[in-house]
Design a protein around this nucleic acid. Sequence first.
DNA 1: TTTTTATTTAACGGATATGTTAAATAAGGT
DNA 2: ACCTTATTTAACATATCCGTTAAATAAAAA
Lengths: 106, 106
Amino acid sequence: MAQLTDTFAALSDETRLALVERLMAEGELPAGVLVANAEISGPAVSRHLKVLREAGVIRQRAEGTRRLYSVRPEALRAISNWTMDHRAFWEAGLDRLGALLAEDKE
Amino acid sequence: MAQLTDTFAALSDETRLALVERLMAEGELPAGVLVANAEISGPAVSRHLKVLREAGVIRQRAEGTRRLYSVRPEALRAISNWTMDHRAFWEAGLDRLGALLAEDKE
DNA sequence: TTTTTATTTAACGGATATGTTAAATAAGGT
DNA sequence: ACCTTATTTAACATATCCGTTAAATAAAAA
């Protein structure tokens, strides 16, 4: 569970979520490109990338002096698996074991 | 996006994730029952519940002096929607698709 | 109305997070 | 070698998070 909470923590910051979404949309990108479009300093972006990497959300690859980042599918798959494990709970129209929520749906 | 990051933040703590999973498994429960099984103090649990509530993950209902908590399906559905929006990145066999498409653009 | 039960809010301390600027590192070009 | 480019690490300030114990609040019971 610690792994999952770490992933959630990594994605709980708007800057980091934006970085991840950009990497998903455009594929592998070097740190410099990510910095160029960010509103915060290079070092700040660099540390966000480190947080994402240590949480297993992205991976890093060196090419000359550049560091190329890309999203690791495993992390997102873990989140998806978690939601699917509890699919019965949030999916409309399904019975829920022992739940008292059926009547106060909004 | 702030809403989604708030949800991730709410679930990024192990105690809170455990509370949410318990409420999903057992349905609506009063604060006291949740406190009884927690390893931290009542006030600590109370504040975790407040964080979850303010993030929209759970809802609170009063019954006498008791406060009954339950999970709001909308929050989990939002996470599920986000993962599904990006499923091309984590689905087996398609994890390279996004990167390849992005390379084509250059 | 006084007491008990259920729960939250207040006050406080220590750990963690996030931003900045300056310095360090490392590969490449001249 | 020296300078430039790309990026990270260091040092620092401030803010937020999370735990604790003590006090406050509110409904129910006596």
